[in-house]
Design a protein around this nucleic acid. Structure first.
Length: 804
RNA sequence: GCGGGCAUGGCGGAAUUGGCAGACGCGCAAGAUUUAGGAUCUUGUGCCGCAAGGUGUGCAGGUUCAAAUCCUGUUGCCCGCACCA
């Protein structure tokens, strides 16, 4: 037989699979379906790096096994191709984003195909294709019609020298990433989606789903449900100041109020405020910082703030006057944008009160509020709180909330940290938002029969001076007529964020060429929901939540039949560079899969990435270690020439064969591919020592096929087997045959291993103890000692606890 | 700051979930083979020790017959934070 040369056999089998549509999914109601999904990539100009194939391969292994077990698998791939990096690359290199996108996709597709993934390439989707984004726009129109899309003034990052709205990522240390210029906040009217309307369901419905725990925990924390109360504070300005607090019980300890610097009352109250200049200066300062900077600095750094001279608030519980401040540690985007400050029992309030010399009142006994805020108060007892005195914190919460309600000064409320989704981008490379502004009718949705609203092909896709989308410059596109009254009107020029297209792509895979609907009802009914969705942890709180939100919405309007899109969610760890750092172009530690394939082959690449470590954890790449995976495949290849002719398993191999089949199958289902490979390596070591029959070898090839599909097809053919190995049934194992007749038990004395005994499996305690005492090493340890306890774990261990 | 996570030989990692720590692989060492090898094969390889033995899972305590695993405290590192995808 020839030498193992992946450069020969891999392209051959890849062509074979494509031409024969080996992995095309067909709707077949006779078979159980299995819809496996990996996050489709953003086709960047850098091409694939070795991080991409990790999840693709892991799920590919799983689905290849499931197919061999007779399941009807849908395993698709596509491109999430709108977005900022492509647009920035296009601007920098003066190539149209559409061309950049096409080139990148072609490169990605070729790279992924070279890895031998069993994707169904007939179902490829591309979010930038008008036939696709027609439906992205259609969903937006439905959201609008249901009142879930609305316009709101929001502040955005604004580079004063580029005159561009910047993404948070493009702001580095408060300066513009491209030009280093100053970044300020600028208010723009933005389309928003009311994801907050779904906040409760997005938490509650996690219950029935098989998501790995850290994913559901992250989602819950991100949505951030808290139970508390709204409390109304009267002010000398006449307006009531409403705050949300999770600690209504501490209202007697509230000694001042803090509003966010953006609070709308500030403008309203301007005539009353005696220190308007000081307030304006503070607002300007705060506007320069992001929410993230503000909360980060809040705890470390000295508190800052300005007292509103001329306005005070009244505590509804104590009736006392309270000063009102603005400070940037209070965020406009959370709660009501204002807080009651309880310095005795909140660290931030305590620090602020110390700095500004404000009274600190103890309302929960137990701490020393002179030294620090006492926050560990769940078991505490109320003091200095009038009718709440002596109550527990839990009782006080309820009592005071009821009291506030009767007084019409408050009510229990559930608050969420989750904010609505900012859906506008002042950019070119995104789906146009299908809305028209008419001076008489206001915002009017484009009629559905006019979809898709195509993104016009323009050459000047740089942003405009005013910070509007480049589309705003194109009057011939912007000018239209009002769909409602026919008057002259203007199109919305903002585009959608990249998240839009990725919020429903899994539905399109079910029926990707349908021109009448997102997908046919039949296809959706058969394939949905996704049975297993794997993706990065970094997508847990945005993409995963956004797509659940859209899916729930589509469920509510009857487009889909399931309220949740994904039954199971797993998450892979990142592959780091050889230096243990995140791979990035600037660090120069990026490893390209093309190079690995060229040197070792795709099968080695696949085996190595699956062997590298626990799938869920980050792992550093190590080029030297890839050799071990190649060596393993070389040895499998070489063994084909030295097979014993029998088709079955030899009696002495039965147990190890059945155990390996069991272990590999079990591990693959749990994405423990690393230990599955270790088990196959051990089996190969066994073969090396004892030889292998054709039957034993064929089993190894079948187990290995999902991991190394090319070499195993080739060897299957080479040893004269019929058909494709991919179409064979997954090897069966017999539980009874995985057992060994005899087992080795460890014998410990005081927990330290002192000897080993070999016994028939299932030997009783007396027999094990007798054998253990007979062991020379154990007997020596027991000599002259008193045995106080004998522990026996069947087929595992004996432990003597001794004294003296 | 808030939220999530991680820590085991020279390296990547394993440990049936409280039961022999270091499976499997890389590297390294010795030997065999080869015209040669950075190829292949065999053997060895946590640390200290000639050995008996001792010791060992970031650090400090605790629970237990028994702890990488459970509890308390602590240190360090990584990821996300809403306009990157």
């Amino acid at each position: 037989m020839t030498k193992y040369d992946p450069r020969q056999i891999e392209p051959k089998w890849q062509r074979h699979w494509l031409q024969n549509k080996t992995f095309a999914a067909k709707l077949d109601k006779e078979k159980p379906k299995f819809y496996a999904l990996v996050e489709f990539p953003y086709p960047s100009a850098q091409g694939l790096h070795v991080g991409h194939p990790r999840p693709y391969t892991a799920i590919d292994v799983l689905v290849r096994k499931r197919r061999m077990q007779g399941q009807n698998v849908l395993f698709p791939m596509g491109w999430d191709a709108f977005g900022l990096p492509t647009e920035n690359f296009a601007i920098k290199n003066h190539i149209h984003p559409a061309i950049v996108t096409k080139n990148n996709i072609d490169r990605f597709r070729a790279q992924i195909q070279a890895l031998g993934m069993s994707f169904d390439w007939d179902r490829e989707v591309n979010t930038t294709d008008p036939a696709y984004y027609k439906w992205t726009q259609w969903i937006f129109l439905q959201l609008y019609k249901q009142g879930l899309a609305y316009k709101k003034e929001m502040s955005v990052n604004w580079c004063t020298s580029c005159k561009v709205v910047l993404a948070n990522e493009e702001v580095v240390n408060g300066a513009c990433e491209r030009c280093g210029g100053e970044v300020t906040r600028k208010v723009k009217s933005q389309w928003m989606l009311k994801i907050t309307e779904y906040a409760g369901r997005l938490i509650d419905d996690l219950e029935g789903l098989d998501y790995i725990e850290r994913v559901s925990t992250s989602q819950k924390n991100w949505i951030g449900r808290s139970h508390g109360a709204d409390i109304t504070f009267g002010t000398s300005a006449g307006d009531d100041l409403v705050v949300f607090t999770t600690r209504p019980d501490t209202v007697f300890g509230a000694t001042y109020m803090v509003m966010s610097p953006e609070h709308p009352y500030l403008q309203k109250w301007a005539p009353l405020l005696q220190n308007g200049d000081e307030i304006a200066a503070y607002q300007a300062e705060a506007a320069r910082k992001s929410d993230f900077e503000r909360t980060e600095l809040a705890a470390d750094k000295e508190k800052t703030g300005v007292r509103l001279a001329g306005v005070h608030a009244i505590n509804p519980a104590t009736g006392k006057d309270m000063p009102v401040y603005i400070s940037d540690y209070v965020l406009a985007s959370y709660g009501t944008g204002a807080i009651m400050a309880v310095p005795g029992h909140d660290e931030r309030d305590w620090a602020f009160a110390k700095k500004f010399g404000l009274p600190i009142v103890e309302v929960v006994a137990g701490g020393d509020i002179e030294k620090a805020a006492y926050t560990d108060i769940e078991q505490g007892t109320m003091v200095n709180s009038d009718f709440l005195d002596g109550l527990s914190v839990a009782e006080a919460k309820k009592t005071v909330t009821d009291w506030l309600m009767r007084k019409e000064k408050g009510a229990a409320r559930v608050n969420y940290k989750l904010r609505d989704w900012v859906f506008s981008r002042q950019r070119y490379w995104g789906e146009p938002i299908p809305m028209v502004w008419c001076d008489t009718c206001g915002w009017v949705p484009l009629p559905e029969d006019q979809l898709p609203l195509e993104l016009p092909y323009i050459e000047d896709f740089e942003p405009t001076e005013e910070g509007d989308s480049p589309l705003a410059r194109h009057e011939e596109w912007v000018r239209t007529t009002c769909p409602k009254c026919g008057a002259a009107a203007r199109r919305e020029t903002d585009t959608m964020p990249q998240w839009a297209g990725s919020s429903w792509y899994f539905l399109r895979y079910c029926d990707p060429h349908n021109s009448q609907a997102i997908a046919s009802d039949e296809a959706l009914a058969y394939w949905m929901p996704v049975d297993w969705y794997n993706g990065g942890m970094e997508h847990t709180t945005l993409h995963l939540l956004y797509s659940r939100f859209w899916h729930k919405f589509l469920f509510d309007i009857g487009v889909v039949k399931d309220s949740e899109p994904y039954m199971k969610r797993t998450s892979h760890g990142m592959i780091l560079g050889e230096d243990g750092q995140k791979m990035s172009k600037s660090r120069g530690n990026v490893v390209n899969p093309d190079d690995v394939i060229a040197e070792y082959g795709a099968d080695t690449m696949r085996v190595y990435e699956m062997f590298i470590g626990d799938f869920e954890k980050t792992a550093p790449w190590n080029t030297a270690s890839t050799k071990g995976s190649r060596r393993f495949l070389d040895r499998v290849w070489a063994l084909a020439e030295h097979l014993l002719p029998q088709e079955g398993y030899r009696p002495e191999m039965e147990s190890v064969m059945h155990r390996t089949i069991h272990k590999v199958g079990h591990d693959v289902e749990n994405l423990k591919h690393n230990t599955a490979i270790a088990a196959m390596m051990s089996l190969l070591n066994e073969f090396a020592a004892k030889g292998a029959t054709r039957g034993e070898y064929k089993t190894l090839l079948q187990l290995l096929n999902p991991f190394a599909p090319h070499i195993t097809e080739e060897l299957w053919q080479a040893i004269g087997c019929e058909g494709e190995i991919a179409h064979q049934a997954w090897p069966a194992y017999d539980e009874a045959k995985t057992q060994e007749d005899t087992v080795e038990l460890v014998v410990q004395v005081n927990g330290k291993p002192r000897g080993h005994i070999t016994l028939p499996a299932g030997a009783p305690k007396e027999e094990a103890l007798a054998a253990a005492r007979a062991d020379e090493g154990v007997a020596k340890q027991l000599l002259g000692k008193q045995v106080v306890k004998e522990i026996f774990v069947p087929d595992k261990l004996v432990n003597f606890a001794v004294k003296g």
